[in-house]
């Protein structure tokens, strides 16, 4: 029974990590840039929800989406666009800089003690199925995660901007010679990754309502680990990696005695090292997969 309970918890957690992994993977696809400041988008969403805790949930959620998407677009426009031709290492360091900058802005604005989100708190109640307890947020997160990834797949496969995104991810230079506007596709990638970050903020603040300046950091690192485990080959392998990390967290958390719960990340990262040693291109990536065919 505890196995089933872990499985259920793993699905809820995995869905959130999968969405974060796809948000990071999408921007990586077109820019070859791992945006370490992605977590700060989630944090921005968390603070927005905390500030609007007394507002109707729908208003709080809409404002949260607006703020996070705007911040994602600002990150691209102010920090990353001027550096687009720079060396990959420069860009990577720039994402760290943006991450630290935003964390310190949050610290100055909201303090270190954290702000509590009350939006959708009711989803923490559980329904009992036999001896299993299923929280509503697990169900909502699973459905929302699947719906988001489904919608994204539709956008990528059925729209012109989706087609341009896939082409840009495979070969931006050639796409540009065909008339695909680099600024437009990169802006689109950041906007979509912002929508995904806002969704994660809504889902995550129900489960952990205390928003601190480094709120988005750990979920981003876990999702990044998921991306590496799954393989940056395609978005679905990245999202599967996200799921895998969610499951690993839930299972290892279940197996570890409660007194040793602080070792949870160490055990999970240990498993990750094992995966990287055995399958360097990722658990779900094809053997001959090349980095050129992402998304």
């Amino acid at each position: 029974m505890t196995f089933l309970q872990s499985l259920i918890d793993g699905i809820g957690l995995g869905a959130v990590y999968a969405v974060v992994a796809v948000g990071i993977g999408l921007v990586f696809g077109v820019m070859r840039l791992i945006n370490f400041a992605y977590g700060e988008l989630i944090t921005a969403g968390g603070y927005t929800l905390a500030l609007l805790s007394n507002a109707p949930a729908i208003v709080a959620i809409i404002v949260c989406f607006a703020v996070v998407v705007a911040l994602a677009l600002l990150q691209e426009r102010i920090a990353f666009r001027p550096l687009r031709g720079a060396a990959p290492a420069t860009m990577l360091i720039a994402t760290f800089a943006v991450s630290f900058l935003l964390q310190n802005v949050y610290l100055l604005a909201f303090g270190s003690r954290g702000s509590t989100v009350g939006t959708l708190g009711g989803l923490n109640t559980a329904i009992a199925v036999g001896s299993l307890r299923i929280r509503w947020i697990t169900i909502v997160a699973t459905i929302a995660g699947a719906a988001l990834l489904g919608c994204l797949t539709l956008v990528l496969n059925r729209t012109m901007i989706g087609l341009q995104l896939r082409a840009a991810a495979a070969d931006l230079r050639t796409a540009r010679t065909l008339g695909v506007r680099a600024n437009r596709v990169i802006t689109a990638a950041f906007a979509i990754s912002g929508v995904l970050a806002a969704s994660v903020a809504v889902l995550l603040t129900v489960q952990s309502p205390l928003v601190t300046p480094d709120y988005g950091v750990s979920v981003t690192i876990f999702a990044l680990v998921g991306v590496v485990v799954g393989g940056l080959d395609r978005l679905w392998t990245a999202s599967l990696g996200g799921f895998a990390i969610g499951f690993a967290n839930a299972f290892v958390g279940d197996l570890l005695p409660s007194a040793s719960s602080q070792y949870l990340p160490s055990v999970v990262y240990g498993l990750v090292i094992l995966v990287i040693l055995l399958r360097p291109s990722g658990l779900f990536a094809g053997r001959r997969a090349t980095a050129a065919e992402r998304v």
Partner: peptide, 9 residues
């Protein structure tokens, strides 16, 4: 899809 990308210009 390759052909449709050509329409971008």
């Amino acid at each position: 899809e390759n052909l449709r990308l050509g329409l971008s210009a």
